[in-house]
Nucleic acid binder design. Structure first.
Length: 155
DNA sequence: GCCAACGTTGGC
DNA sequence: GCCAACGTTGGC
């Protein structure tokens, strides 16, 4: 099983929105970066776990956990002209962008903040903490995953 | 709101 | 293929 971290701005869609979604599931669409696309399309598997990361907000950080419940499929929002993520250059016959379905698993009792993650030397290798990182989807190692869950649960 | 860092675009 | 200009991300 793989571990991931996926970013979203809570002012657009946060972990509470996911929890309130029908079936506690949503289509994680709108990713328009090729590196992230490749991971969504090629590497995400049903049953993989993902940290839900809140970006661009006060208290940026990890808010909880979700699970991949449908592996990569062509992102419908790329083909829908009314969608803000519409890509006019996208070809339905050769999909460029991909999405997964995710399901709410857990909301932490608190946000494990970015500042806090930065304080732990054991997490210094995290892609999230690398300078200039802007990926909205990235892998998380099993050891980093465990440590972050320990932090969330007060060890 | 500012700005650093990065990805993409397009002229050449 | 180079690279300047531009747009976006996201922390602060």
């Amino acid at each position: 099983m793989n571990y991931w971290l996926m970013k979203s701005e809570p002012s657009v869609f946060g972990i509470d929105d996911l929890r309130r979604s029908p079936g506690r599931k949503t289509c994680w669409d709108g990713v328009r970066n090729y590196q992230a696309r490749n991971m969504i399309r090629d590497d995400m598997r049903v049953g993989d776990q993902a940290l839900f990361y809140h970006s661009s907000t006060e208290a940026t950080g990890v808010a909880g956990i979700m699970e991949i419940v449908r592996a990569g499929f062509p992102d419908p929002s790329a083909l829908e002209p009314d969608d803000p993520h519409y890509d006019p250059d996208s070809d339905p016959a050769a999909p460029r962008w991909f999405a997964v379905d995710v399901k709410f698993k857990e909301k932490f009792g608190r946000i494990v903040t970015l500042a806090e993650l930065k304080r732990h030397r054991a997490l210094s290798g995290m892609q999230l903490l690398k300078r200039g990182n802007r990926l909205s989807v990235m892998p998380v190692s099993a050891s980093h995953w465990r440590l972050i869950l320990d932090l969330a649960r007060g060890r």
